[in-house]
Simulated scan of single mutants.
Amino acid sequence: MSIQHMVIFNLHAGKDTDEAQNFLSSSAEELAGIPGVEQFQVLRQVSVKNDYDYGFSMVFADQAVYDAYNSHPVHTRYVAERWMKEVSRFQEIDFTVMA
């Protein structure tokens, strides 16, 4: 069963800055290239009901592929060197489709 992984977040660099754009585009390039990542999207939050600025969404074929992504060296390095330094707060959520 596929998993849709989403994370919404704010950046220390703020919203709609050159630094934010750089983070978003370089993150997409890095993360979308990890084996097993499908349908990677960079999202900009527009609802007044939510105070997060951006989101990433991606799909994994199953739990094993998702687990491999989480432990992949590119992902673990990205989290340590970029995410933990540049993201001020975030929320993750994972969905499967209900039949």
Rank of each mutant, 00 (worst) to 15 (best):
V48Q: 13
T96A: 14
L43W: 01
V37Q: 00
T76L: 12
S26G: 04
K85F: 13
Q45C: 01
D67N: 14
V46P: 06
T17C: 05
V87Y: 10
V87L: 08
E81I: 07
V59F: 02
R82Q: 10
L11I: 00
A20Q: 02
S71R: 11
V79K: 14
A13H: 04
E29R: 07
V7C: 00
D18G: 09
V48I: 15
Q91F: 12
Y66C: 02
V59K: 12
L31S: 04
S88P: 00
P35N: 11
A20D: 06
L24H: 00
A99M: 12
D94K: 02
T96P: 02
R44Q: 04
A68F: 03
Q63L: 01
L31W: 00
N22M: 13
K85V: 15
N70T: 09
Q21W: 10
P73I: 09
G36I: 03
H12E: 13
R82I: 14
D53S: 14
Y66I: 03
Q63I: 12
Y66A: 09
N22E: 13
E92G: 08
V65C: 08
Y69K: 01
N70P: 07
D16C: 01
D53G: 03
S27I: 00
M58Q: 09
D16K: 10
F23K: 05
P35F: 02
A68R: 06
D53N: 11
G33R: 08
Q39R: 15
D16V: 06
D94G: 04
V65Q: 10
H75K: 06
S88Q: 11
R82N: 14
A13R: 11
E19H: 14
A64P: 02
A80C: 15
D67P: 08
Y69E: 04
A61L: 13
K15N: 14
N10R: 08
M58H: 09
Q63G: 13
G33A: 12
D18P: 10
S25M: 13
I3G: 07
M84A: 15
Y52T: 05
G33K: 03
D94I: 00
R89Y: 06
D62H: 09
F60H: 07
E86K: 10
F95R: 02
Q63W: 08
N70G: 15
R77G: 11
A61T: 10
R89H: 13
V46G: 03
N10G: 01
L31I: 10
S2K: 14
M98I: 12
I34Y: 06
S2Y: 11
V65K: 01
F23C: 03
S25G: 07
N22W: 10
V65Y: 01
S57F: 04
S25V: 12
A64G: 05
E86R: 15
Y69S: 04
D67Q: 12
T96N: 11
E92T: 12
E86N: 15
A64D: 06
N22S: 14
F95I: 00
Q41W: 11
D94W: 00
Q39H: 13
V7K: 00
G33Q: 05
E81W: 10
W83H: 05
D18Y: 11
T17A: 03
E29Q: 13
Q91Y: 13
V79H: 12
G36W: 06
N50M: 05
N50F: 04
N10T: 08
A64M: 09
G14Y: 05
F23L: 08
S26V: 01
Q21K: 12
V7E: 02
F40M: 01
L43C: 06
K15W: 05
A68C: 06
M98V: 14
F23W: 05
G36C: 08
F40E: 00
Y78L: 03
S47H: 01
